[in-house]
Design a protein around this nucleic acid. Structure first.
Lengths: 336, 336
DNA sequence: CTGAAAGCGCTTACAG
DNA sequence: CTGAAAGCGCTTACAG
């Protein structure tokens, strides 16, 4: 039933397998009449070309692999959807692999992709330059997502953390705030570092009068709460706080509320990420929204270019997906 | 570089390709010394067997396909994670395909899976018995998820809507409520229908004195709100409301609150799904939690059985994943 | 234990 | 336009 091969179709149509192949792949080099007979035979036999055989001979799998740290949660959910839609639009299948606890597991997953995919989308904390050299065939088109090992020249797509942070700081400055504190992310975290970089740059260049004020944090709500307590103790007190992510901003607001400080009247707050909860907290949180689905779809587009036109994308190409300021109540924009 | 084939390894190790194949696939039928030489050669050449060639000859892809309506949102996020983890545990790759707007698109996706997968996990609103007959080769192991077309004998895994509803009604009864109203889901929706069935059964059998009271709804928060308005107008008024899903329960609570009715003191409320918001609303919502990830992992397990031991799973096998009562404030359990 | 050979299902020069 | 044949990279009886 499902075992019909090209031979069966050839016999049924009374032609050679070569003609069947030609007729079914665009129909070049066969008469319309022959093609019709072949298509009818194929239909009758419920013929579906065997994917593996075709892969073997054409060296094309029409499949891309996505190696992700996880599949769960809003971030990955959106990411994979962006990838999936873009892949489908190009007629590519999607092979996913996730949850690699350590570098070894990621390496195994990476090697297992070989021969199954025409290209790779890769997001992994284990993917340093050395890891990639060891486990990636150099001729396999690959796009790194939010992963940029120094010293490797793979294409990479990342969130524009720097640009997003600039938007937020400029927004706060525009509202008249001058003492703007920054709650940092985990030490060594690249996203957090880039956000801090944007924060420092804007303060330094736009208004030399505003010194950078940094507080330690680790992306957790608790660390934001602790930072909020520190803000309360500072003299002079900051008039705005920009947290490297939303959860810390929310924790910080909780600390201020406990102390009877009004947000945004007394202190303005900004976050980063636009998590779903951001619009539900009180006051609703002004933050930076990142288009995660776009991260996926643009990475897929970049990969598609490489697959279709090898060499068309220069090694080491870097692209960013934009971040957008979402003004809500916590920054007090309506009041200013 | 990545082009090393079994021939290259054979030459490098000074043996035949047959020996290479044997050594690399378990090592049966080769001396330890030969095997060692071959493994070394393979390592030196960064040899990775070509997946397509292996698929072609072994008729095994070590891949399962998952056809889903979407990938986005909490439900699918959890589902696909359950599938992914279970697949990985069995050493199977996962090919995903989603967002098929119509039956034709789903059919194309289904056919494209052929030859690429050893089995299929399928969730689709388009999958009626006729559709499956047309587009599924009958010898491809398949498990339906929350999709049970009448007249087909595929294996199916579903959420235990009936059991979950029973738990909720029994919970409300145990708290002393007798006039328990039910807010229905969209007409024709199977999940909603099964929940209503469970509701009716428990009322009928456990306490003949409690009549079923149903209100129309469509799973939306607004429809829950409208049902809440109706509840307010009823005489005698129900002392509990069981909504077929959480969003309607939340809408219903909003209507009661507006009218100054206290939940749970005056009317108890129960929902179904345990959406993330359920714990954040005031009062927090007593509801039925379904283990979505388990739906995925159990479906994968059932599929794995079929792949490994063809015929071991009787046609038409039905299984359920459990639902669990989550008691929060809205049912007033602490008060009773 | 080891190797030569057939064959999985397809595509694509190469002749005719 | 059409077909016979080679070959993609692998596995597996079949001999030795």
């Amino acid at each position: 039933m499902s075992a019909a091969t090209i031979k069966d179709v050839a016999r049924e149509a009374g032609v050679s397998v070569a003609s069947v192949s030609r007729a079914l792949n665009g129909g070049h080099g066969v008469t319309a009449e022959t093609s019709r007979r072949i298509h009818e035979a194929a239909q009758r036999l419920h013929y579906v070309p065997h994917a593996a055989a075709r892969m073997l001979i054409t060296r094309r799998t029409n499949t891309v692999g996505a190696l992700l740290p996880d599949l769960y949660g809003e971030f990955f959910s959106e990411l994979i959807r962006g990838i999936d839609l873009a892949a489908r639009a190009r007629g590519l299948h999607l092979l996913v692999s996730s949850s690699h606890d350590d570098a070894d597991a990621a390496a195994v997953a990476l090697r297992a992709m070989q021969g199954r995919v025409d290209g790779l989308l890769l997001m992994s904390p284990h993917a340093d330059a050395d890891f990639l050299r060891q486990n990636l065939p150099h001729d396999l088109p690959t796009v790194l997502m939010n992963t940029r090992p120094a010293g490797s020249d793979y294409c990479a797509l990342s969130v524009d953390n720097d640009g997003g942070a600039r938007l937020m700081v400029e927004h706060l400055l525009s509202l008249g705030h001058r003492r703007i504190a920054f709650i940092q992310g985990p030490p060594g975290n690249r996203d957090a570092g880039e956000r801090e970089h944007g924060y420092r740059e804007v303060l330094a260049s736009h208004t030399p009068g505003s010194p950078a004020i940094t507080l330690e944090g680790d992306f957790s709500e608790e660390s934001g709460y602790r930072a909020g307590r520190q803000v309360l103790a500072m003299r002079p007190r900051p008039d705005a706080v920009f947290a490297a992510n939303d959860m810390m901003a929310i924790g910080c607001m909780a600390a201020l509320r406990e102390a009877g400080i009004c947000v945004p009247e007394e202190i303005a707050i900004g976050g980063f990420d636009d998590v779903p909860m951001a619009r539900y907290v009180t006051p609703s949180l002004t933050t930076i929204q990142v288009h995660i689905a776009e991260l996926g779809s643009q990475a897929m587009a970049l990969l598609g270019e490489q697959i279709d036109h090898p060499g068309s994308v220069p090694a080491g190409t870097r692209r960013h997906v934009g971040a957008e300021l979402v003004v809500r109540a916590s920054s007090g924009a309506a009041i200013a």
